[in-house]
Amino acid sequence: MTTFVSLLVNGISQGAVYALIALGFVIIFKASEVLNFAHGSMLLLGAYVIARLVPSVGFAAAVAIGVASTALLAVLLERLLFSRVGRNKGLGGHGQVAALTIMTLGLDIVIVTDMARRIGSGVLSLDQPWGSGAFSFGDVAITYNRLIAIATAAVLILAFLAAFRFSGWGVALRASAEDAETAALMGIRRWQVSALAWLLAGALAAVAAVFLTGSPTPGLEPSIRTVAFAAFPAAILGGLDSTTGALVGGLIVGVVEAMAAGYSSHLDFLGGGFGAAVPYIVMLVILLARPAGLFGTRELARV
């Protein structure tokens, strides 16, 4: 039982971080209909900036600069690259979506290659001030890093959902996701909405990076991007256009992954290293039952 509770708590904390990443993924998709495969590399960049700055300016300032620079990069990418593709003629709707998505993959290749080259084979530390200590509650142990991750993610996600529901930007974003043309006619500036969405998504990715590289993970390695990849199934199984879905999806993936890793001795018949594949299996099963994810909008068409 204690193992179960401990795995559950750890799974929720990891899931909370996935939810942060998935949320960024979802708002970018809602705002500009781009499936941003470069999200993992933006996260890597944020972590790298923080790790390089920590020795000279201290943790708090480094995180602030790291978050700001990742957010800035995201906005620049949106302004300079993604918003321009829409003006191109010569591709149909589907070709357009495929081309945009492949462009994010191209960006991902460039940024990840560069990051991997700079980080090298070593492990960079982000030097989180809460260190690698663990908090014990009876037999249930969880590292401070993960505890703080849960708290931070909860605050950020609640703030975000509130903003999404009540702020002018949130209403504008939802309106233009619903019907871009009508929203534009109502005076909503689409470029502002989508630039802000990219800004927030970049910032969330950098915050997630702080916790992904903290204990029990040894530090920043290029492979962190693969960990961040687990946020894709999280976003999809929740429904790509649903913020609630990102939250639920993140938690499901985090918990299932932790359980699979924790009970791996009982799951030996499935082969070693089953934990890495499990988010995708859950995603495939859910997609079979609900092709638009748990909370995604089902597009109905009568023929």
């Binding site: 499936l35 589907h94 979506v97 495929a98 998505t101 990849f229 894709f232 199934p233 976003a235 999809i236 790509l240 499935l270 082969g271 070693g272 290293g273 089953f274 890495a276 594949a277 995708y280 299996i281 995603m283 495939l284 997609l287 079979l288 092709p291 638009a292 994810g293």
Partner: peptide, 25 residues
């Protein structure tokens, strides 16, 4: 057959990860 465009993109990403696990085992 049931998934469209982008959804299939990520679902097939799952194929790579799950497949690699199965093949390695």
């Amino acid at each position: 057959g049931r998934l469209r465009g982008i959804y299939l993109g990520i679902a097939s990403l799952g194929l790579v990860f799950v497949g690699q696990h199965v093949l390695n085992s």
